[in-house]
């Protein structure tokens, strides 16, 4: 990548960040925040960190952006005008000074670190034993599989935590309808969602399939799947499921459960999370595919929020989103 492109990209990132901070209209701020996330993803691409770029665009820009938009919609529905409150100039100046000082300190610390990556050298000789090419997948699902296992439980726990916020009397029920209220907009969103869901499915399946050898993998693919589900739900193309649907529960638990069982099976081969000789790739793939489903379903439901509609619910019908 050329220097000119890098400079323009950096300026655009700073500009998008600045506008997102200073613009008064919340929707505009969100739009620039999403643009900022996408530009940041490009910067990661420029640094050859493809996996980080995918995660930044999918999670940092995509899912967070959807969350912000939904939060704004709910605030508007509650009668809040969703514009920024005025803060005093002194507070702003103080925050600016504190942040700048901290950034300088951090930059000094980072620059004082000698620029060599020793971990890459440690990873490279171990990769052939796994039968996969993507080092990030190797780290996530072999060398540091224990971290990833616990992390998958954190994600599931987050959904349980969100569910625990449901007001009394609506459990087991379903989350609030994500659909937009405005009729013409709803029509656009619906046809867009219908179009996007299959595309997202194909893309997600590709990402998880390719993840063992080229950048991709369960987390990115799960996010894309969740994105597709959310857009479809916003358009009303699919409904949100009841939280006690057995199929849904299975889909949510599948990834962590398969991961844990494979880990436990490893105890027969010498210890927890030890993959048997020669079948490391099979084990990793099994974990990846099941995690992909669970992450997709969990993220989509996390964005949808806690149950607010009790189950004696006249709507019925659109229970298609059982688990994909």
């Amino acid at each position: 990548m050329t220097g000119a492109f890098d400079i323009i990209l950096c300026l655009m990132i700073l500009g998008a960040a600045g506008i997102a901070l200073f613009v008064r209209d919340a929707l505009a701020a969100i739009a620039f925040f999403i643009a900022f996330g996408n530009l940041l993803g490009l910067a990661w691409l420029g640094l050859d960190a493809v996996n980080v770029a995918l995660a930044e665009i999918a999670l940092g820009a995509g899912v967070t952006g959807v969350l912000l938009i939904l939060a704004r919609a709910r605030l508007l529905a509650l009668g809040d005008d969703a514009t920024c409150a005025d803060t005093s100039a002194w507070l702003r100046a103080g925050a600016l000074a504190a942040c700048a000082g901290f950034v300088l300190l951090l930059a000094a610390a980072v620059l004082s670190i000698p620029p060599e990556s020793g971990l890459d050298r440690a990873v490279a000789p171990l990769m052939p034993g796994l039968g996969i090419e993507n080092r990030v997948t190797g780290v996530l699902l072999a060398f540091r599989a224990y971290d990833t296992l616990l992390e998958s439980f954190v994600l599931l726990g987050a959904l349980v935590a969100v569910w625990s916020l449901a007001p009394a009397g609506v459990w087991p029920g379903r989350p609030a309808d994500l659909g937009v209220a405005d009729v013409p907009m709803r029509r656009v969103a619906r046809s867009f969602g219908r179009f996007l869901l299959p595309v997202a499915l194909v893309m997600a399946a590709y990402l998880v399939w390719a993840g063992s050898d080229v950048p991709g993998g369960a987390f990115q693919a799960g996010t894309v799947l969740a994105g597709g589900l959310m857009v479809s739900a916003i358009g009303g193309a699919i409904g949100l499921p009841r939280s006690d649907l057995p199929g849904l529960r299975v889909a949510l638990v599948l990834g962590p459960l398969v991961f844990l069982l494979i880990g436990l099976a490893g105890m027969g081969f010498g210890g927890f999370l030890v993959y048997p000789e020669g079948s490391a790739k099979a084990a990793i793939l099994a974990i990846e595919y099941s995690l992909f489903l669970s992450i997709g379903a969990t993220l989509a439901l996390l964005v949808a929020g806690p149950n607010v509609i009790g189950w004696p619910d006249p709507a019925g019908g659109t229970d298609r989103h059982s688990d994909c």
């Binding site: 971990l119 990873v123 780290v139 490893g266 210890g271 999370l273 030890v274 993959y275």
Partner: peptide
């Protein structure tokens, strides 16, 4: 050592 991966990398 989880999964028998050695230390700089493993847990």
């Amino acid at each position: 050592l989880v999964g028998h991966w050695d230390l700089p990398l493993g847990i």
